[in-house]
């Protein structure tokens, strides 16, 4: 069995992912900044200039609070889902702990996330929404989001080994998410009541609401939101760990 150094291995895998993504690009890490900035500009143009009956304040910041979490979920989930199948060479030849492969992919996406969070905080300051004590909630909500993504990626990456269609299911799902989580709109009380099952236990929505309340309103996120968010994230991680543990022993035969 494998008796190596988990942390060293995890770190090497994360750095590998990060390096190979940027090595051959002249703009390098700037792509992490450019992509959300462009989307933010386009959406601001569409929703404040083309359709000007918009009452949301600080619209660019409002949109960015949705885009940054969504980008992270979409990149981490998509790349995490194919991580085992893409690393078949590794899985078939070295008895490394399999969990490390999808989790390292998620953590590599976290490096981009950090850059984008930096951008988000910068834009917050530009709009004059200063630093407040509730910023201390930021690491908590981001950590919960990362835990959630690790959980869901453990499930889909393991399933993708057995059923290669899973990656396309995930891709389609991520596209639907763009519209079903409130990135560029604010659900009215009536709507969020009617679709409460869509909004309440959706960790991406929870993260977006929490960010807006911390960064734009300067309030702490409501406790009920944090509680549901934590419940879903930790639950998802538990499920992911269990499912992955059950499926990993036959990866070798199916890759």
């Amino acid at each position: 069995m494998w008796k190596g150094d988990y942390i060293f291995f995890l770190e090497s895998m994360v750095m590998k992912d990060f390096k190979i993504r940027y090595r051959n690009m002249s703009l390098g890490v700037f792509w992490s900044l450019l992509n959300p900035l462009i989307l933010m500009a386009v959406m601001t143009f569409v929703f404040t200039v083309l359709t000007p009956n918009n009452t949301i304040q600080y619209f660019p910041l409002f949109v960015l609070c949705g885009l940054v979490p969504y980008n992270f979920f979409s990149v981490a989930w998509n790349s995490g889902t194919v991580s085992i199948t893409n690393n078949a060479g590794l899985i078939k030849r070295v008895p490394v702990p399999r969990e490390v492969v999808p989790i390292s992919t998620v953590l590599a996406a976290c490096i981009h996330l950090l850059i984008q969070i930096g951008l988000l905080l910068a834009v917050t300051l530009v709009y004059g929404r200063g630093i407040n004590w509730n910023w201390l909630y930021l690491p908590v909500v981001w950590a919960l989001a990362v835990v959630f993504v690790c959980g869901i990626v453990l499930v889909t990456s393991a399933l993708d080994v057995y059923i290669r269609d899973i990656r396309y299911v995930v891709e389609s799902f991520v596209t639907v998410l763009f519209w079903s989580v409130p990135i560029f709109y604010y659900p009215s009380a009536e709507i969020s009541q009617r679709f409460s099952y869509v909004f309440d236990y959706n960790p991406i929505t929870a993260l977006i609401f929490a960010l807006r309340s911390i960064l734009i309103d300067g309030h702490a996120p409501p406790f009920s939101l944090l509680a549901k968010f934590a419940l879903v994230s930790l639950g998802m991680f538990g499920i992911g760990w269990f499912v992955f543990g059950r499926l990993k022993s036959r990866f070798f035969d199916y890759l």
């Binding site: 190596g4 291995f9 770190e11 090497s12 895998m13 390096k19 190979i20 070295v94």
Partner: peptide, 24 residues
């Protein structure tokens, strides 16, 4: 195993060593 064409020889040796089970 785990060698990647875009990484340098040095980076590949360290990565390969980590997954072969070397301590840092």
């Amino acid at each position: 195993a785990g060698f990647h064409p875009d990484l340098t020889g040095r980076e590949n040796v360290i990565l390969n060593a980590s997954l072969m089970g070397f301590k840092r």
